[in-house]
Design a protein around this nucleic acid. Sequence first.
DNA 1: CGGGTATTTGACGACTGTCAACGCCAGTGG
DNA 2: CCACTGGCGTTGACAGTCGTCAAATACCCG
Lengths: 250, 250
Amino acid sequence: MSVTHNGQARATPTKCENCPVRRKALFQVVADDYLHDAESRRTAQYELPARSHLYQEKQPATMAYTLFDGWLMLYRTDANGNRQGLRIALPGDFVGYSPLPDAKHSHGAFAVTAAVVCAFRQSDLRAMIDRHGDIGKQITQIQAHYLQICETNVLGLGRRSAEQRIAHAVVDLHHRLQQRGEIEHSAPRMPFPLTQEMLGELTGLTPVHTNRILRKLRTDQLMVCERQRVEILDLPRLIDLAEFRPAAAT
Amino acid sequence: MSVTHNGQARATPTKCENCPVRRKALFQVVADDYLHDAESRRTAQYELPARSHLYQEKQPATMAYTLFDGWLMLYRTDANGNRQGLRIALPGDFVGYSPLPDAKHSHGAFAVTAAVVCAFRQSDLRAMIDRHGDIGKQITQIQAHYLQICETNVLGLGRRSAEQRIAHAVVDLHHRLQQRGEIEHSAPRMPFPLTQEMLGELTGLTPVHTNRILRKLRTDQLMVCERQRVEILDLPRLIDLAEFRPAAAT
DNA sequence: CGGGTATTTGACGACTGTCAACGCCAGTGG
DNA sequence: CCACTGGCGTTGACAGTCGTCAAATACCCG
């Protein structure tokens, strides 16, 4: 696996035949007739090293991806290069789709952990949508869903305190992991590969302030954030603090 | 025109046959065969008094709307009832669509000014999409576009100062009005029916701080915001301050 | 062990919110 | 015509949140 000079990952084919998410992920967006085509399958699957970029902002959006394994962060940067996280993509999520033929990515995506993705040509997807109305509907629903998440982020960034935003980010990830069966119900411990800096990017905070808030949450007995994992001490109180509503988040 | 006790506007049919936006708006989303049906046309058109709500959060999304005249504000409220503006809808915009059959609105919409809308049953729209692939594509593109705007808002709220956010909101509206031909190119004066409080809701600020920023922009000779109108004194500098990128905003 | 990355902490200042009061203006009813 | 009223805008004083700068510590990986 290699990374080009600009941090863009060189996509290299890999085997992931029995990746557990794979079959669950597929039904979300991918038509069987596409993946059952042996040749596409052979070239569609890639592995990304941690910290590499899957695609960058303003880059032509020729491909879209289903994430099979690992975490991605979707982000956008301002004129000074500050990154603002938009969303964490978890296994099974579909990212990078654009309905217009020659659009550019409105945001970038990088691998928080090493990741495995399945790439599709946007043109293929659009052709599939034309043939198969159902796929179009599913994609529309995925889009609508992502839009709701984005609206939730706007509300959070505009109206909630740093503490609430961090609590929200953690509770949201906990909820999504739980839904995917990656942690047992209400388990206190969850994997958390984000650095504090990334968590700050996601919540609109500086790394320093993120750290202080995490300390406050720890001393308040709400949660403990260590490297690579989070221990939730009081989920109900955390949900309450974050004003988390599962329906609008998932 | 009447307003029910909960602030919901009672829709009353109205005539707007030669509304200038109408023909331009229609091509965006509405199939001719729908509006050319005389009966639907008679019942589809409504007038909203200023400050009334077109739809509210969590309300079943049975209808979607094309805005013919006036300004709407889409918003979301937190647990304490604080409103966070998501977007200003201008004539020609299509709002309230949801791809799922029995979804609820993820946000509310109220009339900043008196407004005229054309209402469509979501079920009719979905039926049209099934018959007419083109409409589905257009709606997908509208969704994708709105998503980009939402991402821009997240970036702004997370990483930009109050001054930049206000400048961005004004420049964005100026750009959109200009595009619609509602103001001449680079005209210094533009209509601005938002109150300072609404502008604050849109930019994640309190009314008081919004006012202070407007004063600063005035003393810095960038723009003057009076009741109902804004005068732009130095558009290039304002665009620069706001880091406004037309492509990602429109 | 060494070097780079991530986390932690303190001191300080800027930005933004809160509270409170006042002024302005348009509409309303007498 | 005038006084009243309610909404909006304006301002000051103050507090709290959050960012910046700088330094020290802890951790990971080779």
